[in-house]
Computed example of a mutant assay.
Amino acid sequence: MRLDFFDLQLFLNIVDTGSLTKGAERSSISLQAASERIKKLEQHYATTLFIRHAAGVKLTIAGQTFAEQALLLAQQRKQLEQAMSPYAEGLTAQMSLWCNSSAQSEYLPTLLPQYLVENPHVHIDLKEAESNDIIQAIEKGSAKLGLISSFFNSQQLQTLDFFDDPLILICPTDHPLKIHTELKLIDSLNYPFVGLMQYHSLQQSIETQAKLLNCAIQYRLRLPNFTAIAQVVANGVGIAIMPKRAAQRLSSQYAFHQIELTGEWAKRQLLLAAQNFDELPTTYQHFVQFLLSQKAKLILDED
């Protein structure tokens, strides 16, 4: 027997009115039909739910248990209908994802189209910001979810590993450093650099590493994005440090040599960050699960 919500409501109407006749009337069915439905329930559960008497009906102990569970199911059904009705009416779910420049340019364009096609009711507002600013926004509650670099202190937040995002050095194809396949940062600091603008957290992090080596980076030019940097490096202006994935993407457009950087500082990761992932709204939790499930796709794309 398949449990029918109509039968549950009929049962509750009978309990509420104390009468099979009145319960049938409230459910808009005949007394005979109501009696047959209750009889089938009792046969299915192999127990008596009501004791019938001249004044109406009274619940048995089994009937009381059934009534408690039927009420819970009826309430849950109502909650389900309330939760789902906005989607039937075309409601859209709005999410904001804060991300650093590397995530915004190198990872999300690969993943977001699939998610948006599969979830047509969802709108995503991408907010590009520096990792430090994202961390502060999440801590203050003005942001719910972010993609940040492991460079930065996020101990007050929960984080999940999203993807490795190492840094490499690129140089012109005729540059003296082209003989190297890997390099320490200090071995590159005697050469002129092309860098991101001063406000970029990535460039600030690279400069911090140089200061730890008692060196200062010599900039010939500062530019707003990785594409512009790759172009001027390929034209022989200087060397630069950028995420490996960005360099691999741009190497098909511009001719430059790629050199692995040694040291833990260069082996950074992208992290998903939130105050508490379990307390995120359902839409955000679903999106996080999607992003984590797509890591294999990013590896395949990289290969």
Rank of each mutant, 00 (worst) to 15 (best):
L3N: 12
F6E: 02
F6C: 01
D16F: 08
L20F: 04
G23R: 06
R26D: 09
I29W: 13
S35K: 13
S35Y: 12
E36C: 11
K39P: 06
A46Q: 15
T47Y: 11
R52L: 14
A55S: 15
L59S: 14
G63Q: 03
G63C: 05
T65D: 07
T65A: 07
T65L: 07
T65R: 08
A70L: 02
A70P: 04
A70G: 06
Q76L: 14
M84S: 14
Y87T: 04
E89P: 03
L91Y: 11
T92P: 07
A93Q: 11
Q94V: 06
S96Y: 07
N100T: 08
S102Y: 12
A103D: 02
Y107E: 03
Y107A: 01
P109D: 10
L116G: 02
V117M: 08
E118Y: 04
N119T: 07
N119Q: 12
N119Y: 06
P120A: 07
H123W: 07
I124W: 10
D125K: 11
L126W: 02
E130V: 05
K140R: 12
G141A: 09
A143F: 06
A143V: 02
K144Q: 14
G146N: 04
L147F: 07
I148C: 00
F152T: 07
N153I: 07
N153K: 11
S154V: 00
T159L: 06
L160Y: 03
L167S: 08
C171S: 14
H175K: 03
P176I: 09
P176S: 06
K178A: 05
L185D: 02
D187P: 01
S188M: 03
M197I: 12
Q198V: 10
T208C: 13
K211I: 13
K211Q: 15
N214C: 11
C215G: 07
C215K: 15
Y219V: 14
R222F: 13
F226P: 00
A234Y: 14
V237E: 10
I241A: 00
R245E: 09
R245C: 05
A246M: 04
A247N: 03
Q248A: 05
Q248I: 02
R249P: 00
S252Q: 11
S252N: 08
S252H: 09
Q253M: 00
I259Y: 00
L261W: 14
G263K: 08
A266N: 00
Q269E: 14
L272M: 09
A273V: 04
A274S: 14
F277Y: 06
F287T: 08
V288C: 03
Q294K: 06
I299D: 13
L300A: 09
E302A: 13
D303E: 13
